[in-house]
Design a protein around this nucleic acid. Structure first.
Lengths: 243, 243
DNA sequence: CCAAAAGTGTTCTGCGTACACCCATGG
DNA sequence: CCATGGGTGTACGCAGAACACTTTTGG
């Protein structure tokens, strides 16, 4: 095995010296997906840093010394989008050397899921906070497009294995709404009968015994997600959500 | 939406000031898995930092300013274990506030796979570099046990979807060796006939027309991994490696 | 000829997939 | 009564899972 005399390990040299040499900034960027019964969107803000002024950017902030990246992501969601207790998953580290124009900044990506209707945007900072259909986004500030793409890949993978889809629907929903959610996010069509059989066989839906009203056609039954049944199922060996 | 007057964005205030306030260290830690036909092991080193002196630690180093975390992981594998061009996958960020005793240090985990026979340990630093059976590890320095556990979970998941198992076997191997590798890593037993049928149906094995010698029983046929066939297969919609 | 590991086929079951028509409501 | 979306059942094919005996070699 090779050795290296210049080998440095954190803690073996003066902390001040090492910070001076290797200290860097870490940020957290949040991909906030919003679904509106038609399209999958992402919450964006206009960037104010050269050379990306006016380009679309994700909501992000620097990681504080006294918080984990998870806590930072929660803080960003809460302070900058008014979102609390929502689904959140790690997308990974992005550490390209020149990803930030002003200094060495690595970032940790997270993604979340919300229903757009539940979430009234108040653009207090006048920063042009906007939902953009992910299908139309071609370019973003920094490497945020790359983060978005990774988040989308992870969302698609996860959605097939866990019923997180319910997080993007109203509490009471119809089976067609559920199906159309999967179709929009995954970009594929499902057979109605097969979709329903599969979902019902999972035993995580509660038939509320209610129906839609104010629709000019046969009203659909309303369902809700039975999270205790799901947790039980998960404990007994997992959910296979392939549809 | 809530606003926050104290909101800070990287690039909007003096870079020196922000480094002073939010600068931190980032390290990369490598979980190097080694398989020896019997058990799954991980390469460890004795830690020299209080309060973890003599505890087991992963190979890691601080992230340099001019490299990505991927590059740092490659450097660690090369300089400290003599490993080059080996399989490597990201495990994620570990950012607990007190995970390092001397300062705020976040780390990015990676894992790799090697065959122990191919890799002669030269412990030039006299740091007690050792292969340890992962099944016997209960405690490690820092949060390295947590990183190891995450790496193991990811390895198990990945091994079922991609034929990375071949990276942990000699170039020529028998089907029983391959099966036993899967059994050791996943901790479950497979039916011999089903395993063989499944593997052969994947079309990624080359029958070398050779057999074992110097065994005191019927010699087994030797196979190698046909990586071009695998790449073709992957391109045409992926491999399902469930066994 | 014995020990030890190599090698081999069939059946059953469950799941994904393809496919077409009637139903309930509002206007 | 018509337009609109809601709702239902059957048949086929593939893949995973269960299961036991014969073969080849060295000692």
């Amino acid at each position: 095995m090779k050795n290296k005399d210049t080998y440095i390990e954190v803690g073996q040299i003066d902390p001040l010296e090492i910070m001076d040499k290797f200290g860097l900034l870490c940020t957290v960027d949040c991909v906030i997906f919003g679904y509106n019964q038609e399209s999958l969107n992402v919450l964006t803000i206009e960037c104010t840093t050269k050379p990306y002024v006016d380009k679309l950017s994700l909501l992000g902030d620097v990681l504080y010394r006294e918080e984990t990246t998870n806590e930072a992501a929660k803080r960003i969601l809460r302070e900058r989008a008014g979102l609390q207790n929502i689904y959140m998953e790690d997308v990974g580290v992005f550490s390209d050397i020149d990803r930030h124009p002003l200094s060495r900044v690595i970032t940790v990506g997270y993604y979340s899921l919300v229903q757009i209707e539940d979430f009234a945007i108040v653009d207090a900072q006048n920063r042009h906070l906007t939902w953009i259909d992910v299908a139309t986004i071609e370019e973003m500030a920094y490497d945020h497009k790359k983060i978005l793409d990774s988040a989308l890949i992870k969302l698609k993978k996860t959605i097939r294995q866990q019923p997180i889809g319910f997080k993007l629907l109203p509490e009471k929903f119809t089976l067609n709404q559920l199906q159309s959610f999967y179709e929009v996010v995954l970009g594929i069509k499902f057979d109605k009968r097969n979709f329903r059989r599969k979902l019902k066989s999972l035993d995580v839906l509660t038939d509320l015994g209610e129906i839609q009203d104010e629709v000019s056609h046969r009203p659909a039954k309303l369902y809700s997600f039975d999270s205790t049944a799901y947790e039980k199922r998960k404990a007994n060996g997992g959910v296979n959500f392939t549809v």
